[in-house]
Design a protein around this nucleic acid. Structure first.
Lengths: 154, 154
DNA sequence: CTTGACCTTAGAGTTGGCTCTAAGCTTATA
DNA sequence: TATAAGCTTAGAGCCAACTCTAAGGTCAAG
């Protein structure tokens, strides 16, 4: 039986995050000591590792909740349910990639158009393009919010 | 001289968003009526359109602030400063694309491995992969947060 | 002169996934 | 026995870019 920080080092999740996941129904300690300490058994550990793996792939906590509920009774669920979740995630990812590639293209065009040197920006072609609005931003935007993800751990 | 909602329909920004940008120093009404109404002249409109264009490309509000401060005195700034901002954004975009492509690859592999049919999920290969953790999630993750951007307008 | 559309402000709420704080208990080590 | 490390909880804070609310003032049309 592991304490929370031990489960943490086993899975690479912080105790804070583990409690957070518990609050959201993803992970549970099957036992508590008299003083309230959480204790995790092998089954708990496996579940936590499942969560960690799914999270690393990029599934949302909500997705993971669905996958977990399939996991606890696989006979009551079909492969199709699993692929539906996976495909839906893939669709999201593909849409996001397309959006970012549009931004990429626009930014690259801007960079290609400008000398990038120490000259005064008076005739900077990037500034001109922004002023004139003649920028192909189709499909781009709505992206910046998302460009820097937060999760950067193992 | 345009009122705020007129500037809004001119630029595709909502009055709420225009006030929000004002609070963040991006847009300003050069005049106010006695009763406090904002009035925008041609120069204000051009600035707002600049902001809109830059935002559509995917620049953050902070980036846009920098670009605007270059814009107001181009002789005091160089092309290099402009390309630095642009290149930095492009680097972010490229990093994000790489991350998403890793997720994409993993998800596609999972999908390819599963029948996706009405069979019970007992032997579902996606579930097995998640259980065993033998999933190539290198470079993925830290992404889901960002997968669904918010901004979806013009 | 009233109706309704529009304007003002400060400030709160949204999203998702953490991340941290405060205040207090428990446990292990020296 | 004292100290430090680690545990508990509820709840606040963070990020970015909005988005909306409340409570009220303004203005043009009929």
């Amino acid at each position: 039986m592991l304490k929370i920080s031990e489960l943490g080092s086993r899975t690479g999740l912080s105790p804070h995050t583990i409690r957070f996941y518990e609050k959201h129904g993803l992970i549970k300690a099957s036992e508590r000591s008299e003083s309230g300490y959480r204790y995790y058994n092998d089954s708990d550990v496996r579940r936590a590792e499942f969560v960690k793996t799914a999270r690393n792939i990029g599934f949302s906590l909500d997705d993971i909740g669905q996958l977990l509920s399939i996991r606890v009774d696989k006979t009551a669920h079909s492969c199709q349910e699993v692929t539906d979740i996976t495909r839906h995630k893939l669709d999201e990812v593909n849409a996001k990639i397309a959006e970012l590639q549009s931004m990429q293209k626009t930014l690259q065009l801007l960079l290609d158009s400008c000398c990038g040197g120490p000259e005064q920006a008076i005739h900077c072609s990037i500034m001109e393009a922004l002023e004139d609005g003649n920028v192909d931003a189709s499909g781009a935007a709505k992206a910046h919010k998302t460009v820097l993800g937060k999760r950067a751990k193992s």
